[in-house]
Amino acid sequence: MHDQARRKLMLGLAGAAGLAAYAAQAQQPGLLIVTEEAAPYNFTENGRLTGMCTELVQEVLSLLQQTAEFSVLPWARAYEMARQGENVLIYSIARTAQRESLFKWAGVLTQVEYSLYALASRGLRLGSLSEAMRWQTATVNADVGEQYLEAHGFAKGKQLQSSAKNQFNFEKLKMGRVDLWITTDLIAQQLASQAGDDGTRLLAKALPLPELQVDYYMAFGPATADPQVERFRKALETLKKNGRYAAIRRKWLGAAGPG
């Protein structure tokens, strides 16, 4: 075979391989990222998705030079989409023993601590979790707070009133439709502030739940390939090493403790 003919053959093969690789990549399902309204971690403001954890996920995407579609959904729907789907990333999701095998965990975004809140004017203080069974508690459907209470004998329709998002729970608490609300400290204060209320005056911790101190993660369902999960984990670790993680955390939390 003459050199010129050989070069043409090699170029043709290279071009065919390139087209095949492009086609294979194009056929891969796009990345979908799902989350919920949970300020200050992830929430919509003036039609734009923002929040501390949102910024961290966006920084990871930028580092990976990857595009994705974001979708803000009721938590239970986002949870099931991520658990059952392929190439679906969910954040901010608490890592618990109950959820351990249901997801592939791609890195810690922040740490949170839950409490049972009541209106300060009620003067309601609980000595133990069992005392809370006398009262109606607002929860978010399928979130870690609701799952925690269910694991301790609480039931929807009895002691628990489940909603699609925390904003509804805050409103129910203010209106006196529930006695307690399980949520994180920052979510409670943020929703009160957004409603024009002083959360430090309006709300009081009826029962802190230090045993429900959990890490919020990025996570994929089991159908997502391990290399994809590892790419996201390593990118988040890079943000923690290069200072971007700390800078974003300071922007949103200042010198606050657990997120």
Rank of each mutant, 00 (worst) to 15 (best):
R77H: 12
A78Q: 02
Q190R: 09
R134H: 10
V108L: 12
I187E: 12
L209T: 11
F168S: 07
S193F: 15
A164T: 06
D179T: 00
R201D: 08
A120M: 10
L109M: 08
L89C: 05
L89I: 00
S130P: 06
G123Q: 03
A118N: 04
P74T: 06
M175S: 12
E80D: 10
G196N: 02
S162V: 03
F170W: 14
N141P: 05
R83I: 09
I182L: 05
N166K: 13
A106L: 01
I187M: 04
T110F: 07
A155E: 10
R77G: 02
W105L: 04
R125N: 03
I182W: 03
M175N: 08
P210Y: 13
A82I: 09
S115N: 11
E113S: 08
S193G: 12
D197A: 14
Q194K: 08
N141K: 14
L126N: 13
K158Y: 10
G127E: 04
L126H: 05
W75A: 01
L209K: 01
L149T: 00
E113H: 04
S162Y: 14
K165D: 15
S193M: 15
Q136L: 11
V144C: 15
N169D: 10
P210L: 12
V88E: 10
V108N: 12
M81Q: 08
G153L: 11
K165M: 15
T184F: 02
G153T: 05
L109H: 00
A78K: 07
V140A: 11
L191Y: 05
S121D: 06
A195F: 11
F168T: 15
L149S: 01
R83V: 13
A192S: 06
A164C: 13
S101P: 13
A206I: 00
S92Y: 13
L116T: 01
R122I: 00
S101E: 12
L129A: 07
L160F: 08
R201S: 04
A106V: 05
T137D: 13
L207S: 01
V178A: 06
Q194W: 14
L73C: 08
K156D: 08
I90T: 03
Q189V: 03
P74Y: 09
W105G: 00
R122Q: 05
S115Q: 07
L109D: 01
A132K: 01
L212T: 09
L116M: 07
A151F: 13
R125C: 06
L116V: 01
T183A: 06
T137R: 14
L207G: 03
T200L: 15
G127P: 00
T96M: 10
W135H: 10
S193H: 13
A188I: 03
S193R: 07
Y114T: 15
I182N: 01
I187K: 12
R95V: 04
Q84G: 06
S130Q: 04
S162N: 07
P208G: 00
E86H: 02
S101A: 12
S121G: 04
Q161E: 15
A164Y: 11
W105R: 03
E150K: 07
K172T: 12
L126F: 07
L89N: 00
F170D: 10
G196A: 10
A206T: 00
Q98M: 09
D179S: 08
L191D: 05
N141A: 09
E211W: 09
R83Y: 10
L160E: 04
T139D: 09
T137N: 14
V88D: 02
T110M: 12
Y79P: 00
T139Q: 06
L173G: 00
